[in-house]
Design a protein around this nucleic acid. Sequence first.
RNA 1: UGGGGCGUCGCCAAGCGGUAAGGCACCGGGUUUUGAUCCCGGCAUGCGCAGGUUCGAAUCCUGCCGCCCCAGCCA
Length: 546
Amino acid sequence: MPADLRDFIRDRIRRDLDGGSAGVVTRFPPEPNGYLHVGHSKSICLNFGVAQEFGGKTYLRYDDTNPEKESEEFVESIQRDVAWLGFDWEGPTFASDYFDELYGFAEQLIERGKAYVCSLTADEIRKTRGTLTEPGTPSPYRDRGIAENLDLFRRMRAGEFADGEHVLRARIDMASPNVNMRDPVLYRIRHATHHRTGDDWCIYPMYDFTHCICDALEGITHSLCTLEFEDHRPLYDWVLDNIAVNFHPPQIEFSRLEVEYVVMSKRLFAALVDGGHVTGWDDPRMPTLAGMRRRGYTPAAIRELCRRIGVTKSENRIEYELLEFCVRRDLERAPRGMAVLDPLRVVLTNFQPDAETLTAAWHPQHPDLGVREMTFSEVLYIDRDDFMETPPPKYRRLTPGGMVRLRYGYIIICDEVVKDASGAIVELRCRYVPESKSGSDTSGLKPKGVIHWVDAETARPASIHLYERLFTEANPNSANYLDVLNPDSLRAMEGWVEPAVVASDQRAFQFERLGYFVKDAVDYAPARPVFNRTVALRDSYKPKVP
RNA sequence: UGGGGCGUCGCCAAGCGGUAAGGCACCGGGUUUUGAUCCCGGCAUGCGCAGGUUCGAAUCCUGCCGCCCCAGCCA
């Protein structure tokens, strides 16, 4: 029972319930015109969250009133993503399910003298709307008779007119200081095929007319939306006040979730994909839920993020570190494994002929996860940056003549550095201490460092993708995004992974000292392992830069 | 400069007239065969600014200042 959440919306709902309201019904209303992104998760967690907490229900409702931008592909991806986040919905329903009712209410508005068919062009409507400081001027069609309006509107529906010839407008106030109230368009003609209703309609209702009515029809008790719709609330209320509907939900606005180094615009997503800067909507660098899923971010981590950021009306931009904290926190319980990204050969000069099998727990704090076995033999790989010929102070890894523990294995001492003609290090010749075996160490040696390794004999080659933020700027936008693209957002390594990880049916692992990794959902195959680094480990090692 | 919102620690965010919660980040320290996890401790005489009311103000009043949103036949 996560009844510990408190914010102005939950407070309001609590008050409504105490005041005798029957229950809680919310809705998550995406337009199926793109993939869901982290920003949406705030709305999802809020809408589904409050319903769960107060014993209500939440509709997944598609706001599909603009056929030219919408498609079945997106309705499917949205359901996949909401389900992945861990929520069950009522429905799904579609605004297009209500096209008949919507049309009826539109005629009702006409009959009541509250709406009229306007035959101005889009351009003329714009020009007569006035400006932010000057009132608009009434359309010459504003006072058309009811019968004529009804006739025209029916003929609009019947397909007698071309796109743009007429629109249905609300008759409110051309001098309103709120430009949204200056006779907003309610219906426009669009001879387009709708992904669900096909060619049944050639007129489509606008958001402002549709949303409030769908909310009312579905009995939404709290219509939660983002801040930019605050100015639309008077129109939301006007529509419901002027039609014969007996339910009037309150619209309550909260601020969007923004994240540093992340763009949330579908337009920009498309530009990134089309420009070849990422591989697709589900590229692990994308802030889409599909991308984050492939990256290895977990639903619990995203829910945790939404819980921690709260719900207010202040605009905010969360630091990426908070998201990463949530991801690490959830992944901490992942089984451990070892992988080497950039191999450096280590030859054990005193190794006995037969390989030895070592046993290691899958998790140091969770013995219930069991153990796995790994071989230890004459030739090993360690990561290149775990060896330095001239180490900085406080370096706790391998150095010439130095000693280090191989995690779960033995202590080794580096006797010789082998270089090629160009002076590059190609191999380390080391000696291991037979009595230093992990768990039964009688050597008395106390090496300062512990490093990871794999057995060259049995390790599996693997592609390992390391990711960094897509942008080098905390606030990328449509104007500068190309200039601030991070050229190193993806580093593809050809490394080695211990075989038990590949054999395991688990997908997410912590490769010790490197971070959390996940088997790529698309490209991974046991014969050709591909891992994505979800997030690196927290690292408090700060070498003094020379 | 019309209308609608928002301003509490680097980033979020409690607080609703009684003398600044918490989280992330950061900085110290402890445990540790992951420089991880975990554990301890530190981190706003100050709440956009200026006045005022009050015994007492982040909370009330007045006036400023700053930021965001709105002029789609998009949502």
